[in-house]
């Protein structure tokens, strides 16, 4: 790869993959924006890649080619989905044993279900530790909360992030400022969310069974 052309590798760590997941829909505009600025890109779905020997090779090969790794995943129980952790384990083990010299930059975009973007903080720290151990240069972690479609604020934050990544300048605080705030008040999220679950269960005729306790202990 010539010095002039930069390569971004998007790693998506959601079971819903490269098309349907919210995490990839958040990361896609960044990749598209970089391509418009002359970058090349490739995108991998970690769940699929870690499941086969060929996929694992492909993953490590892509990381070797990257000037920038854009990692996008949902928050699963305050951390990453298991196959996404598997991907990071493989990358870190390889970077350590092979002593690869180049240090690609690493950026993460995390999205969670709860309305507070700060719920992602612990997981962002885990990713930062990963970047340290894998020998990558940590740039920033962008955290988005749940509740509704991707907001205008989030879109402009991703635009600013894209520009900073292309120019290799510090990511402006504006990105954090635009994404830190919950998309709606907590009470509204709770009421709206609880209505949504009942409606969804109704589609499966499960509304009356929502509170079932199939594993209740015999003594309780």
């Amino acid at each position: 790869m010539s010095d002039a052309t930069k390569h971004v590798v998007l790693l998506v760590g959601s079971p819903k993959g490269l098309e349907k997941s919210r995490s990839s829909r958040l990361a896609r505009p960044v990749v598209d924006g970089l391509e418009r600025r002359g970058w090349t890109s490739e995108s991998l779905h970690l769940h699929a890649e870690v499941a086969t020997e060929e996929g694992r090779e492909r993953l490590l090969g892509a990381v070797d080619r990257a000037d920038l790794i854009l990692f996008a995943a949902p928050l699963y129980v305050d951390s990453l989905p298991a196959p996404a952790i598997r991907g990071l384990e493989l990358i870190a083990a390889r970077q350590r044993t092979d002593g690869v010299e180049r240090a690609p930059r690493f950026v993460s975009i995390l999205c969670c279900g709860f309305v507070e973007p700060s719920q992602n903080d612990t997981c962002q720290r885990i990713l930062q530790r990963f970047a340290d151990q894998a020998g990558f240069e940590w740039v920033t972690g962008v955290s988005l909360g749940g509740g509704g479609p991707i907001s205008k604020r989030a879109r402009s934050a991703l635009g600013i992030l894209t520009e900073a990544l292309d120019l290799e300048i510090l990511v402006p605080d504006e990105v954090d400022r635009l994404t830190r705030k919950p998309a709606m008040p907590r009470w509204l999220y709770i009421i709206g969310g609880n209505v949504m679950w009942r409606r969804w269960a109704k589609e499966y005729d499960a509304r009356d069974r929502l509170r079932d306790r199939p594993y209740r202990r015999p003594d309780s």
């Binding site: 129980v77 298991a82 990071l88 885990i126």
Partner: peptide
Amino acid sequence: TFGGYSSELK
């Protein structure tokens, strides 16, 4: 594992 859980536990 990076301060957290292994993929096997997770």
